[in-house]
């Protein structure tokens, strides 16, 4: 036990220098910066709220399409990476591919898609979709691997095809959990989509970034408030829906 704690402490010490943790005191010695920041945040500037609301809507729409594409493409990948449905020589390669798509952050994908399809929300949609295919396929295949195999054998015993076993034996069993996971990913994607604009992939992130870089803390505050409100509302509604599903 103490060996584990010693290891954790050793790692923290090792990471102290590279992360410039010694400068943490700046937060207190340069308190005037923070004060300026804070006072501006207390006076949010809602003059351009119509523009921000529009961009927030675009952000949610990016998340919606990104999630939808990820679910549609993720479902077959989920089936292919379920050990109780497919043989190991299918499962392993598909899982590694999904690991790769999960491992790369959506911002990185956004940068790539901005090059491919140009600045704008489409790059954001594609970035979210590709990153989420990996996540959806993992979440969905975990649900598939936890099913009761007996109804599936019941279907098999009627002389059904493999495809039909999945359609009628597996999907009805996992449908509630899948819907719940999809909603949860949508919530998360709305949050992720708010920063995609920083790299020019659409949504409210662009305005957020610009106002911060030009020291307009009033408008920044209003944008942050709009983001927080939207994310809260979506989380609450989606949590309600998910409770009804499972």
């Amino acid at each position: 036990m103490w060996l584990m704690w010693l290891g954790v402490i050793a790692l923290l010490v090792f990471s102290w220098g590279p992360t410039e943790m010694s400068k943490a005191s700046l937060l207190i010695t340069d308190w005037r910066n923070m004060a300026e920041f804070g006072s501006a945040f207390l006076q949010p500037d809602f003059r351009d709220w119509r523009i921000y609301a529009e961009q927030m809507l675009e952000t949610v729409q990016i998340a919606l399409w990104g999630t939808a594409i990820a679910v549609v493409i993720g479902i077959p990948f989920a089936i292919f990476s379920s050990a109780n449905i497919c043989p190991v020589w299918v499962v392993q390669p598909v899982r590694r591919l999904m690991d790769a798509s999960r491992a790369i952050n959506e911002i990185v994908f956004a940068l790539l898609f901005v090059v491919a399809v140009g600045l704008g929300p489409l790059a954001g949609v594609l970035a979210l979709a590709v990153h989420n295919i990996g996540i959806i396929s993992k979440l969905f295949s975990e649900a598939v691997e936890a099913i009761d195999p007996r109804p599936v054998e019941g279907i098999r015993s009627t002389g059904a095809t493999r495809m039909q076993e999945v359609l009628f034996g597996v999907i009805p069993q996992v449908a509630p959990l899948w819907s719940s996971y999809a909603l949860y990913r949508f919530e998360t994607n709305v949050r992720s989509a708010t920063v995609l604009g920083i790299v020019g992939a659409g949504g409210i992130g662009q305005s957020l970034y610009e106002t911060i870089r030009s020291f307009q803390y009033g408008p920044t505050a209003s944008i942050v408030i709009i983001i927080v409100m939207t994310v809260m509302i979506i989380d609450i509604v989606s949590a309600r829906l998910r409770k009804g599903l499972v």
Binding site: R150, G154, S157
Partner: peptide, 21 residues
């Protein structure tokens, strides 16, 4: 086997049915 299975109906001890259908 697939064609033969359609000629053999199997009834298991329990949990034959797909629960949500």
């Amino acid at each position: 086997a697939k064609a033969l299975r359609s000629r053999i109906g199997i009834v298991f001890q329990q949990f034959n049915l797909v629960p949500r259908l």
